[in-house]
Design a protein around this nucleic acid. Sequence first.
DNA 1: TGCGGATGTTTACAAACTTTTACATTTCTT
DNA 2: AAGAAATGTAAAAGTTTGTAAACATCCGCA
Lengths: 226, 226
Amino acid sequence: MEKILIVEDEKDMVKGLKFNLEARGYFVLAAYDGEKGYRTAIEELPDLVILDLMLPKVNGYEVCKRLKVERPDLPIIMLTAKSQEVEIVTGLELGADDYVTKPFGVLELLARIKAVLRRSKSGTTLPEVCRIGDLEINFRKYSAHRKGKPVVLSPREFEILKYFIEKRGEIVSREDLLNQVWGYDSFPNTRTVDTHIAKLRQKIEDIPDEPKHLITMHGIGYKFLG
Amino acid sequence: MEKILIVEDEKDMVKGLKFNLEARGYFVLAAYDGEKGYRTAIEELPDLVILDLMLPKVNGYEVCKRLKVERPDLPIIMLTAKSQEVEIVTGLELGADDYVTKPFGVLELLARIKAVLRRSKSGTTLPEVCRIGDLEINFRKYSAHRKGKPVVLSPREFEILKYFIEKRGEIVSREDLLNQVWGYDSFPNTRTVDTHIAKLRQKIEDIPDEPKHLITMHGIGYKFLG
DNA sequence: TGCGGATGTTTACAAACTTTTACATTTCTT
DNA sequence: AAGAAATGTAAAAGTTTGTAAACATCCGCA
């Protein structure tokens, strides 16, 4: 279970976020000022920090900057009150992994949390080359082979395959795929996923009609077996 | 972490710049007159100096000239209050690496800082000669060989290749390339990049149609593998 | 000054890739 | 077993990329 630290002085906001995040299965910590936020982040080693820009004692920038020195890999999502401040956070590449402007929708924040967590993990979870049954995938070279013969995958197909391999055995919903492969800021039709799955099956399955790897879970999504 | 020296007498300006630069991970020093600015530049060996033209005691023009004698490689960005003064900075070939006219946007300045720093570093970050697969590139001689045979690259092609080699394995967008290779102040069409990539492939790939080095990332950019 | 060649940029069209659409098929529910 | 919902997939529509060729610019040189 992922541990998320919220650093934010508006108690109602913290309460709301905590409720929502816990409902999704995250373990949530909170700190109400910059100083405590920083200390908690160092001591509790959360997987993600949600950091307000305006904070008592030490402001969000400072906390972000210091944390990035102490724990460069710790993902941080910044909350900014006004859209003007966005320029500062993004343009300046403060080190935050993402930012959300208040007021924001819970779903949006959740999508970003998911995306950021995934990004922060994905770098290390997969080896460079991976053998699965008759498949061999080289993630660095963006190449794949089946029974020793090269399989030409488009970039999107490759990313989808990669995601399935990361989640091998788990059920992956179309929404998951859209969020994780496409990103939370692009919104293609859900059916697009099916089309890509079909094409992937043509390329990586012996008999695309009877897939051994990419299995349909009716009403839920797909899962990858190897 | 890069050290930047700001020489500027308007304290508010210094404060603002310092905040923004530190947020972005630079280590910032400040001096409030020309004399101190010069001394600090010599003593602290910053990676970059941001130098106002109008300064108490010794003006920016003098400081720049003296610094260029003492440390010819030290990059300097000039701040000029009126666009008329630009003529002085450029026309007189003062030695500044770039100039920005007040009032300027923070993002613009940051882009220039990045560009100038990159230019000043690029000479040293890469070894003089570099072997990648069947390629051999000599960055000092501006020459390249493939399978022992000389490959004639135009300057632009060479710079592009160099940039890709610096960013080996990372995805590089067309905008990145335009900013870093062409510079922030020239705006060729994005497709120009594609044209150069095509030409590079003709020269450095065995089978240009199936590139092993310069890989297309559809919808994102390119990446270089070695 | 004007010519010629090399380099750089834009343009235009073909090819590759992605997304949507539409309809057939399968699976689920009752 | 029938209707509703979900999925498979071919084909259309929309984007992005590859690349040749036209056009522009720079620079040396007579």
